[in-house]
């Protein structure tokens, strides 16, 4: 098996340029399957830009990004949408749940756009994050930690190849942060590839590898 076939993510000389601003500059990064990678850096360092490129929410201005062997630069917007649907599980800092759907239905939305809804499977995903008893609650009836766990259940439901979490504990208190990190631990133990963007060293400490960005460049990779 070649090197590239072994890596779930390969980023080669990737830059992202907004007019005169270089948000990312010649980033090189490989992530093997099952790795838990944390991307750290201060505000404006390019962490979110990098995550958006990995998550097919944005494209690189230069360089190549290969996700599960596919060169994202060669894909159309519709194909990138397909990759998001099939291969990526997204966890957001602000949860982004649909306000008029219950926790269970929010998980089922991801199934709906992926393939076929399965209420039992969605309920099992909620059970996995300890929220089976809150399945019929609307987002406004859930605490921040519970909403984030629904968001994680939604990210897991389609068995993505990679889970991308942008500041997953940014809006949570310590207790809920601990709960969410435990869930991510369990996912990692089960073999999931996880990329977490964070500026909190205590969150990054859970990862097996940490890279640090500054001014769009990787300044540390441990």
């Amino acid at each position: 098996m070649s090197e590239s076939a072994r890596n779930i993510l390969e980023i080669t000389d990737v830059s992202k340029i907004y007019g005169p601003l270089k948000a990312l500059e010649t980033i090189n990064l490989t992530v093997p399957p099952g790795q838990w990678l944390a991307i750290m850096g201060p505000s404006g360092s390019g962490k979110t830009t990098l995550m958006n490129i990995i998550g097919c929410l944005d494209t690189a201005s230069e360089g190549a990004v290969r996700l599960d062997g596919l060169n994202l630069a060669q894909l159309t917007r519709a194909e990138l949408t397909g990759i998001r649907r099939e291969a990526i599980g997204l966890i957001f800092q602000q949860f982004h749940l649909i306000s008029y759907l219950t926790a269970l239905e929010n998980v089922m939305v991801a199934q709906f756009y992926h393939s076929m809804v399965d209420e039992g499977e969605a309920l099992a995903a909620l059970e996995r994050v300890g929220l089976a008893d809150r399945a019929k609650h609307l987002p406004r009836q859930l605490s921040g930690g519970e909403q984030q766990r629904v968001c994680i259940a939604r990210a897991l439901i389609n068995h993505p190849k990679i889970i991308l979490a942008d500041e997953p504990t940014g809006n949570l208190d310590e207790a809920n942060e601990s709960l969410v990190m435990d869930i991510l631990h369990n996912l990692h133990q089960a073999g999931s590839t996880i990329v977490v963007v964070t500026h909190a060293p205590e969150v990054a400490a859970h990862a097996e590898r940490v890279i640090v960005l500054e001014h769009g460049r990787v300044v540390s990779d441990k």
Binding site: A78, G82, R84, R85, E86, H96, V109, H114
Partner: peptide, 13 residues
């Protein structure tokens, strides 16, 4: 935001 989320989850236009 809801539309953005649905698209992020893989919904086609």
């Amino acid at each position: 935001r809801e539309i953005g989320l649905k698209k992020a989850l893989g919904a086609e236009n």
